[in-house]
Nucleic acid binder design. Sequence first.
DNA 1: CTAGGGTTAG
Length: 615
Amino acid sequence: MQFPSIKKGICQSLKNNSCVKALHSLHYTEIFNKRAAEQNCLALLKTCNSFIKLTQVHANLFKLGLQNNPLVLTKFTSTSSNLNAISYAASIILSDDSSIYLYDAFLFNTIIRAFAQTKDAKHNAVFIYCVMLRNAILPNKFTFPFLLKASAGLVDLNLGKQVHGSAAKFGFDKDLYVQNTMIHMYSSCVGGIEFARNVFDRMTERSPVSWSAMIGGYARLGQSRDAVGLFREMQISGVRADEITMVSVLSACADLGALELGKWAEFYIEKEGISKTEELCNALIDMFAKCGDVDEALRVFCKMKDKTIVSWTSVIGGLAMHGRGTEAVALFEEMKNANVTPDDVSFIGLLSACSHAGLVEEGSRYFESMTSDFGIMPKIEHYGCMVDMFSRTGLVYKALELVHKMPFEPNAVIYRTLINACRAHGELELGENITKQLIGEEPLHGSNYVLLSNIYAKMSRWEKKSDTRQFMEKKGLRKIPGCTMLELNNKIYEFVAGDRTHKHFKEIYKMLDEMGRKLKKAGYVSIISDVLLDIDEEDKEDAVNRHSEKLAIAFALLNSPPKTPIRIVKNLRVCGDCHSATKFISKVYDREIVVRDRNRFHHFRDGSCSCKDFW
DNA sequence: CTAGGGTTAG
């Protein structure tokens, strides 16, 4: 018999990873033993790591009459992450109705999973599921997690509901895995968070994964307080959080800018011995940076053994937010030396660092090097950084030229960047025109009219300013209210501009008056041109005095020990007057004040700000 | 063959 020796030859070929050669041997084997051929085929497919090899193998499988073999097809799909290979396998199933009886749920699950994992072909997972049902192949409990994962990626609530219904019809909606994935799916769909919560609330048994899915859902949506609240409930329920839960919790802390909470989370991680995975460390870095303590972020970063591109990017982006551009650039160079290849996201951090620190030359060089050295095509975000970089230094026309040159239509962010530059550098007419364009793009966005109105104020065009205001009123458009958050003694306080209903209203306003007197003595003068209201000067002054950050700072001065730093988070950009006032407060009251605004951090100390008035 | 997570312009 020749068979054993040929089999040996196949094994050898497989070891050498030469699957096509092995296939030739297989061909001979088949003459002796059909069953052996089938088994060898499976082994063979395991070694196929490219689409070309897969198709070669498959072409030969046709010769052996094994092209419809479900085991072979399953292997074919699960071996490859290549979309072509998956589609190819799917098309074989679809092209031959007569052999559909050969296929089982296992094969369909594999194909559904494969499509669910792709970036752009998730809808095919749903399609294959439909084919499965049409051919009366019953789904099993493994089918739904795969299918739900695809639905989550498609962000389509109606589709999600249908899949949910289908799972219920087959009796799998009480399965823990299915329910957990369902929470994830609903919370990923637009408007689906309530449905996710509904699934979560109805569960009779919840695993840590269920809690993580729900907390992660809130965190992803920016419902950070809900995320933190649910985490507290999780602890009360006695369910032990793991590293994945903590990633979502940290991400919620980062979003809130709640440093105390974030520090506590880190303490909890240490106390519970939760394993500090790469993702968890990255989340810690991001949390510390976004909560205003970028040195802590650096500490976590330096202690990391395996720093990935995300770790580097997070810490570079963190330094950028704090205006520490030179350090960010140095770290970027260090990253390249460590043989970590920069990606498009890391360039966003780097360019934004250059922009915030006024490093125009370095920034321009890096922008060039992005394409020339790394073959990364700049996205609109990268152009956005460059536009901002030129705008800040007063090169408004250079910024404008870049906008005209870039291969994208300018979006609202780009317009706003230009408008701010125009305002800061006295290009008021240009600013007026661009603002009108922006309003054309976003006519329902109240803040855009505020921008326009502020430009008219600067131009002293009072009648136009008043027209704009009246237009806003007529259309019922509103400015987003300024809102500032302050964390004190494990409590989160919120302050809204001009709020007179606040619980601590009296003491705050008393303090504001006192602050006003002390600041004036120190030489502070209100800057009131940024105020929208068309009222007399004294009232205008009053209005800026009641900006939410001032309320928060007053409250913090009253309720925290002397000389301790004050950290606040604002939902909008800090206005010129508040920026100036905070500088004085830091000196007069001898406090370090860290302000996170919409765009970046300001560290006020001894009468000056880390942004060097460059924001 | 099954579930949850990290970085992204102003």
